[in-house]
Design a binder for these strands. Structure first.
Lengths: 131, 131
DNA sequence: TGCGCCCATGATAGTGGTTTTCATCTAGGG
DNA sequence: CCCTAGATGAAAACCACTATCATGGGCGCA
């Protein structure tokens, strides 16, 4: 195994990863950048975007779109396919899995003649803390 | 009832609405603008955006976000709450309703202490015509 | 430990979708 | 027919995100 992974261990990548570990909320790239700067990390916005992109591609973080259309990121516990209940006030999220919804989606799509199926299922609400 | 509706009947609004009636696909504001210009309608991009926004607010059209994050619009048959199976190639969509998913979402959210619940459920695939 | 290759970084400029601004136009009630 | 509040649209602002490219710093190797 000649590690095909060409990722280099940099301070910036670690900083983003560490911050994600400490957050339980979906956050935008800009918010993450701002927070890291506040903590005194020297990191550029470009790098934050790039790092989040990389993490997302590797399935290490979940990405979804906020109501405003901007991408928000969060470290997920499980690397398996799952969905979220997200607080629309603070972004806090809990993971859920829904086997029955998975099969339902597959079935419905096939019935309509669609193939190569994917789906988005997210539940939004206001969490206990924000009520 | 002193009609609170302050909407004026203009040629532009009618043009957008008519075009939406003839389309079965989710289309972006830009695409709709382009199509109207092609048909010789004198309409500005600004107005297209504004009109779609208004229609969406009034629940007359469905809005969702394409993979790239841009907003796409479509006239919906049913004004009731429903979801879609959308072709990621051409935007063609069919409406589906999923009572069991509705109640499932409600139940899951409550179990996690969330209130004022809403949800997004969209199924993406490739339609028969695009295969 | 030191060298050097090459990936990573980040300031800056660019891109593309959407909104705001504001001067002008017009639907439609009086 | 006139007047006015709402509608229009060209241009500019906005904002999230991406591309560019010169510089910096891991890390493999000697």
């Amino acid at each position: 195994m000649t590690a095909p992974r060409a990722l280099r261990a940099t301070k910036q990548r670690a900083a983003v990863s560490d911050l994600l570990d400490r957050l339980a909320d979906f956050r935008s790239a800009q918010e993450i950048h701002e927070e890291l700067r506040r903590q005194g990390e020297g990191i550029g916005l470009t790098t934050v975007y790039r790092t989040l992109q990389t993490l997302a591609d590797g399935g290490e973080v979940d990405v979804l779109r906020s109501a405003g259309g901007e991408a928000v990121y969060r470290r997920c516990e499980s690397s398996a396919h799952h969905h979220h209940v997200v607080c629309r006030r603070c972004g806090a999220a809990e993971e859920i899995d829904a086997p029955m919804v998975e099969s339902w989606a597959q079935e419905v799509a096939e019935k309509h003649g669609f193939s190569e199926i994917s789906h988005t299922v997210e539940i939004f609400g206001v969490c206990r803390a924000c009520t």
